[in-house]
Design a protein around this nucleic acid. Sequence first.
DNA 1: CTACATGCAAAGGGTTTGCACGGGG
DNA 2: CCCCGTGCAAACCCTTTGCATGTAG
Lengths: 160, 160
Amino acid sequence: MKGAWAVAKEDLAEAVLAFEHFLRQRGFKVTRTRLWIAERALGFPGHFSAADLWGTLRIHGISMATIYRTLDLLEQADLIRRCTFMGTGARYESCLGHKHHGHFLCRRCGTIVEFDEGEVKEFLCKIADEHDFQLQQTVIQGFGLCAACRHAEREGWASP
Amino acid sequence: MKGAWAVAKEDLAEAVLAFEHFLRQRGFKVTRTRLWIAERALGFPGHFSAADLWGTLRIHGISMATIYRTLDLLEQADLIRRCTFMGTGARYESCLGHKHHGHFLCRRCGTIVEFDEGEVKEFLCKIADEHDFQLQQTVIQGFGLCAACRHAEREGWASP
DNA sequence: CTACATGCAAAGGGTTTGCACGGGG
DNA sequence: CCCCGTGCAAACCCTTTGCATGTAG
């Protein structure tokens, strides 16, 4: 996996509807702006920053402030996840067809490799229990070199 | 464990010496300022931010810039570790008598519970191998409620 | 004596906030 | 119609950088 994945059109539409439902249920208003952002964010193929989203929505003249405010709502609605990697700003990912997982981040080219964290998480739950800690969310990350960059380093090639 | 631990005097002295050695070996200068910062950072009982350190060194009139520059050196020397938790600035911890571990962070009171990540890490190494990823560093974190706060929430007490 | 380390202030990136205007319910 | 949502700009926090001065080697 290369940090990008596809989202089926019907799933996307369904998720946007779920967001509308979430908004109404909480007394927030359903606006074009919010739906535009939701559609882009939920359908985004891979990890994205607030600025990435802003770039693809430039045409509508949406401000960063609104991007952030809406990402916040999408996160509350459990439709996107916020990830933070050491020394970078926040990154987001759509939850669509995309269960929670861990990330390997290549120090050289920035590629994100995802992996299933099922077994690891089981262990973590056990450990949390032992420490009398109620686990709500986990972050499992690895930093190092992806296959391509390991080869490149050996050959002495320049960084991308 | 409550996120604080003690460092024996002799170990601290030894670590400061190791830092001096590191500096000389790399052609950096050994200055009072660097040694003051190293001593505080290496002996700090728990996790700390750059500002925390700056606070305890106010008396010497050390600037934030120098704090950051020196923390960088201490990290290069493998004497402290930098950790980042979602939505906060960088936190550091001394490596003294304190091997690498995972963190549970209480969402309510901010308490950090540490746990041995031995088994979890083994799993991660295996997974990284399967993905042809060369693992150099891992981040294993959990967010949720510590025992005290779980009780407090049940009782409806205010947040600290 | 020379180059590196330091304090200061200013810049920088990413994110949040205050305000007046515009659009949804 | 009223209030929430929005864009704009400014504020904000944490961190890094440029520069003139101080100091270790």
